[in-house]
């Protein structure tokens, strides 16, 4: 906007309309304005606005709250299903294209894990994966009798969390950095000694490639919730938008503490409420 104003001012010369009673500032007398005006009209025909509106009714402190940045203190994984439910946690869910998608047992373990938070419904359509047209389980034949706790089962490594979650998390980050595999793959590669998943012989489907969206947000990822505000409503997209959507559900329905970057979200909600945002909280 400032650029346009500067341009218009550079193009303009002074003159008050006849019989004008408006206050005049910086007026220079006896300047021929006709050429500049004709030029402005040409620009108007070409699409330059004839009216500029300063939208701000100006609460700079509140506006600065819109610019807050959330830096994720630790890695966060998010699972979304086609009903708009979501889970956030720390476990990984294996994706194996050769077996037809995400491992079902991992999905269930992710949902059931004690560090997982569940969000029931409420995500906008833009963040919800399509439902399966027909259940398309993958072809893997393993893990029917899960939760037995035997070697080679992913469950074995839950002790990482149970014993000392925070230290384990750091260890796992190191492991992740040292490997291009996913977390679960890394664990398997490092610790599994027998009874690999692939060796079982069950008929139950083990993988699914539709109806879910799963993503990992890395530690130190910077998320700017203000980027998802269009006027005074939310326009949530992508993984960062998904994080903001869950943050909103948390702030609006659960608590205003205990979620990364919640103060940023609360500030924005306050701003939106003060500025007439009708859809500050879900449903959108």
């Amino acid at each position: 906007m400032h650029e346009i104003i500067q341009f218009i001012m550079d193009e303009s010369v002074t003159d008050l309309p006849e019989n004008s009673t408006v206050k005049s500032v910086g007026k220079s007398a006896n300047v021929d304005h006709s050429a500049a005006r004709r030029n402005l009209l040409k620009l108007g025909v070409a699409g330059m606005p004839m009216v500029l509106t300063l939208k701000a009714s100006a609460r700079q402190l509140a506006i600065s709250q819109l610019n807050c940045v959330i830096v994720l203190p630790s890695r966060m994984r998010i699972l979304v299903d086609s009903d708009g439910n979501a889970w956030s946690g720390t476990r990984n869910i294996s994706y194996d294209a050769s077996k037809g998608g995400y491992k079902l047992s991992d999905i269930q373990k992710f949902k059931d894990h004690r560090n997982t938070r569940e969000f029931t419904g409420g995500l906008p359509n833009s963040l919800t994966p399509s439902a399966c047209s027909s259940y398309s389980y993958g072809g893997g034949q393993d893990d029917c009798d899960d939760d037995s706790g035997g070697k080679g089962d992913d469950d074995d490594y839950d002790y990482y969390y149970d014993a000392d979650f925070e230290n384990a998390s750091s260890d796992l980050d190191l492991l992740m950095q040292a490997s291009s595999n996913t977390y679960a793959d890394g664990i398997e590669a490092g610790y599994s000694s027998k009874d690999d998943d692939d060796d079982d012989d069950c008929e139950e489907p083990t993988h699914i490639d539709c109806g879910y969206y799963f993503t990992t947000l890395r530690r130190n990822r910077e998320i700017r919730p203000g980027d998802f505000i269009d006027g005074s409503v939310w326009d949530l997209r992508g993984d960062d938008g998904l994080f903001v959507a869950l943050s909103l559900q948390y702030a609006c329905g659960v608590s205003e503490t205990g979620w990364p970057g919640i103060s940023c979200i609360v500030s924005i909600l306050t701003y939106l409420r003060q500025n007439g945002g009708s859809n500050a909280c879900p449903p959108y």
């Binding site: 001012m9 300063l54 009714s57 100006a58």
Partner: peptide, 18 residues
């Protein structure tokens, strides 16, 4: 800055203009 532009910059910096 011309005055119009400066005013348009100051207004959003006011916390109680509205």
């Amino acid at each position: 800055l011309n005055t119009a532009e400066a005013i348009l910059r100051l207004i959003p910096a006011s916390t109680n203009f509205g």
